[in-house]
Structures are given as C-alpha cells and as structure tokens.
C-alpha cells in the first residue's frame, strides 16, 4: 500500500496551495490540479494491482505474492528498457511514418473530393450514398481485405489509415461548404467570381476552419486505428509491440506501449491544433 500514499499527499498539498494563496491560484490550477488527477489515476491503478495477486509456490515451500497486472512502476521500468534498447524509437518512427503517409493521402484526396461534393449538387447526389455507406464500416473490418491486397506489408497499414482518415475529411469538407453563410457566396457572385475563382477566394477559405477541425478528428481516429492495423497487418510499430509483448507475456511492455500511444496522441493533436492559429483561419476559431 506504500505506493498508494503519495497521491493523497499530492492532493492535500494541492488543496492547501489552492485555498491557501490567491497569488498561486492560477499556477496551481494549471499545474497542480492535472497532476493531482493523474496521481489519483495512478494510485487507483496501483490499488487495482494490489487487489488481485496470485500465489507462487516455490519447490521449497515458500509462497510469494505476485501481481497479475503490471504496476505503474513496472511499466515505467519497462518503458526505460524500451528506450535504451531502441525499440521505442524504431517503432514510434514506424507508426508515425504509416500515419503520415496514410493520413497525408487522405488529406490530398479527401479535401478536393469533399469540396467538390459540397459545391456540386450533382456530385453530392451521386457520391453521398456511397460515402455514407462506406463511412460506418470500421477500418478494422477492412484488415482482411487489406492483407489480401497488400500482404503483411506497410502498404496494408497505410491503406487502413487512409480509409480511417478519408471519410471524416470528406464529410467534414462537404459539410463545411454546405454551411458557408450564403451572404459570402452572394457577395462573391456579385463581384463576378465564378468557378475556380469562387473556389479559391471564397469556398476554400470559408470552409478552411471546419476542414481543419475535420483533420483534427481524422488524425485522432487514424492514431487509434494504427494500433489495430499494426497488431495484425504488419510486424513493426507500437501496435505490433502490444501483440508481441502479450504473446511474450510481458504485460508491463503492453502498458508501456499504451502510455506511449497516449503521449504521442497528445503530441499529434497539439501539432495539428497549431493549424488553427494561422491568420487565414483564426476568424473561425475565436469570436473576438
């Protein structure tokens, strides 16, 4: 139970700081509160591990209690091992590479397709039922097809990431066009803008904030799907680490990989959120 004590100390310290001093309230709320929440989470994890142990009888008759689940500390140790033996870096790069290519392709194809569907009523009529029919099929359901087409190769995982990101991007893009206030389109037509000019000066910039939101959503989904893809369709990457470690009964490594997935997911989301700060789209994200 000794691990389970320090989170409560953190919370106590947090409470004292938060209510004790107004000057530190801002800093405290930004730093201590999330740390306290994390501490409670970790202690609950530790508590769960303590709850379920199994007895290991040695031949000499001594009994040792072993955790079934990897503890937070074991996970940290295993993470350290993954860093030093190079697997973490190698597999992170492998996963990131697949997401980058698959997501990139989805952006290149999804935005033009979505904009065309949004602007062209006939294209929309033709393609929307197909898109809406394909969209609810989990990318994971495509794994057998992907392997059939591309084998147990990078291409399989990339294809799955592409599929996972494509539909949110297409849907987000045409919805963005559909919700452009008509006053902008009317103004543009009034000034004689047609076709390509209309697209370049009005349709695209007016949709961009919503498209960026769709990209953010799509990247989040892509990052979730990469694990499933790598568990089955390839022999490397963070998803593969999880299957491989499970097969080797190394559950600390499973948890270590999960922690990495979470951390990298936060990083990716932070990175793509930077797009919202571009001058051209700031109007869409803040009501000043």
């Amino acid at each position: 139970m000794k691990y389970s004590l320090w989170p409560f100390i953190t919370v106590a310290v947090a409470t004292v700081i938060i209510y004790g001093s107004r000057r530190f309230r801002e800093v405290a709320q930004r730093l201590i509160l999330p740390l306290a929440a994390l501490a409670i989470f970790v202690s609950a994890w530790q508590f769960g591990c303590d709850l379920k142990k199994y007895e290991l009888r040695s031949p000499d008759g001594t009994i040792r209690l072993l955790e079934v689940f990897p503890t937070p500390w074991q996970t940290v140790v295993e993470l350290g091992r993954m860093v030093t033996d190079g697997t973490l870096l190698r597999y992170t790069v492998a996963s990131m590479y697949r997401v980058a290519i698959g997501f990139g392709l989805a952006v290149l194809i999804g935005i033009p397709v979505g904009l065309t569907m949004g602007w062209g009523a006939r294209t929309f009529r033709a393609l929307n039922p197909l898109v809406q029919g394909l969209r609810p099929i989990s990318p994971i359901a495509w794994i057998p097809i992907a392997i059939l087409w591309f084998g147990v190769e990078d291409a399989s995982a990339i294809f799955l990431i592409f599929l996972a990101s494509l539909f949110p991007i297409v849907t987000g893009s045409f919805t963005a066009v559909h919700t452009i206030p008509s006053v902008y389109v009317r103004s543009a037509r009034n000034f004689g803008l047609r076709r390509f000019e209309l697209l370049r000066y009005v349709i695209f910039p007016a949709s961009l904030p919503q498209i960026i939101t769709a990209l953010r959503l799509a990247l989040g989904i892509a990052w979730m799907v990469i694990v499933a893809a790598e568990m089955i369709a390839v022999q490397s990457g963070l998803g593969y680490v999880i299957t491989d470690a499970r097969n080797g009964n190394n559950y600390a490594r499973v948890c270590g990989a999960m922690v990495c997935l979470g951390a990298l997911g936060v990083f990716l989301d932070y990175a793509i959120r930077q797009l919202q700060r571009l001058d051209e789209v700031r109007w869409g994200f803040s009501k000043v």
């Binding site: 006053v183 902008y184 009317r186 103004s187 000066y201 789209v281 109007w283 869409g284």
Partner: peptide, 16 residues
C-alpha cells in the same frame, strides 16, 4: 453583376 453592387446587412465582408 459587378455594375450594381449589393451591400448586405451582415456585410458579406470576408473574415478570412
């Protein structure tokens, strides 16, 4: 037609 320009109540000025 650009020879007769409409000014809207909601401006229609492009925020981007």
């Amino acid at each position: 037609d650009p020879r007769r320009v409409f000014v809207f109540q909601e401006y229609g000025v492009f925020p981007w």
